[in-house]
Write a protein that binds this DNA or RNA. Structure first.
Length: 195
DNA sequence: GGTAAGATCAGC
DNA sequence: CTGATCTTACCA
C-alpha cells in the first residue's frame, strides 16, 4: 500500500511539513486507513495558539520529542485529536490532522462512528477521524515512521496537491489570522465548520 | 483551592 | 445555538 514517510522530511518546520502531508495515508494495524485531506501547523516561535507556547508540559511533551511521532491531546472533556510531531528534537512543533478520506476499512470505521449518518461525517473532523481509527491517548508518542507501529504514516506515491487551499486555523481564538491551515480543494471530506 | 477556557461534536 | 464533559492553566 506504500512505505512509511521519511522521518528526515518531518524534521522541517511544521509550516513546511503540513501541506506536504496532504494526500499521505494514516493507517492502523488492522487495515483501517484514511487519506489526509486537511491539516494545520502549530508551534514555532510566537504561536500563541499552540499547546507548546509555554514550553514542554506533561500534556504536550511529545511535541518536543523527535519528528515522526504522534502527539495526542484530549480536549473538551471527551475528544482525542492526533498530531504528527515535526521539527528538530527539542523543538515544540506539530501538524494537526484535521480530516481524512476513508480508503479502506470503511465498515469498521462506521462501526466506531455510529452517530455519523452520512459517510463524510465518519472522518471529516480531527476528533472524528481519531474515533474512526480507534486512536486515543494511548497512542501518544507512537512512532509513525516504522511499519511495526499500530499507527503509521504511509506514502503511497500520491503527491500533495500542486496548489493546496489555505486559510486561517479553525477553533482557536489566538493567531486566528495566520494562514496555517491547508486542505485539498474541493475534497468533500474537508471539515466544514460554521463560519 | 477555585475557576474559566479549550486545536470538538451532535442535536435541537 | 447550546449542552456534554474534564483537563489544564492561571490566579488568588
Amino acid at each position: 500500500m506504500g512505505r512509511p514517510v521519511d522521518r528526515e522530511l518531518l524534521t522541517r518546520s511544521s509550516t513546511m511539513v503540513a501541506p506536504w502531508l496532504l494526500n499521505k495515508l494514516l493507517i492502523r494495524d488492522d487495515g483501517r486507513a484514511i487519506r489526509i485531506v486537511e491539516v494545520e501547523a502549530y508551534g514555532g516561535s510566537e504561536d500563541d495558539a499552540s499547546h507548546a507556547r509555554n514550553g514542554p508540559t506533561a500534556r504536550c511533551g511529545a511535541m518536543f520529542g523527535p519528528a515522526g511521532h504522534a502527539y495526542m491531546y484530549f480536549t473538551y472533556g471527551m475528544h482525542w485529536c492526533c498530531n504528527v510531531v515535526t521539527g528538530a528534537d527539542g523543538v515544540g512543533e506539530a501538524v494537526l490532522i484535521r480530516a481524512g478520506e476513508p480508503v479502506s476499512g470503511l465498515v469498521e470505521m462506521q462501526a466506531c462512528r455510529s452517530r455519523a449518518r452520512r459517510e463524510v461525517d465518519v472522518t471529516n473532523g480531527p476528533a472524528k477521524l481519531c474515533e474512526a481509527l480507534s486512536v486515543d491517548g494511548s497512542f501518544d508518542g507512537v512512532d509513525l515512521c516504522v511499519e511495526s507501529s499500530p499507527l503509521v504514516l504511509l506514502d503511497d506515491g500520491t503527491p500533495p496537491p500542486r496548489t493546496p487551499a489555505c486559510s486561517g486555523r479553525i477553533g482557536i481564538t489566538r493567531s486566528v489570522e495566520w494562514p496555517w491551515r491547508w486542505f485539498v480543494a474541493d475534497n468533500p471530506f474537508v471539515s466544514n465548520p460554521p463560519g
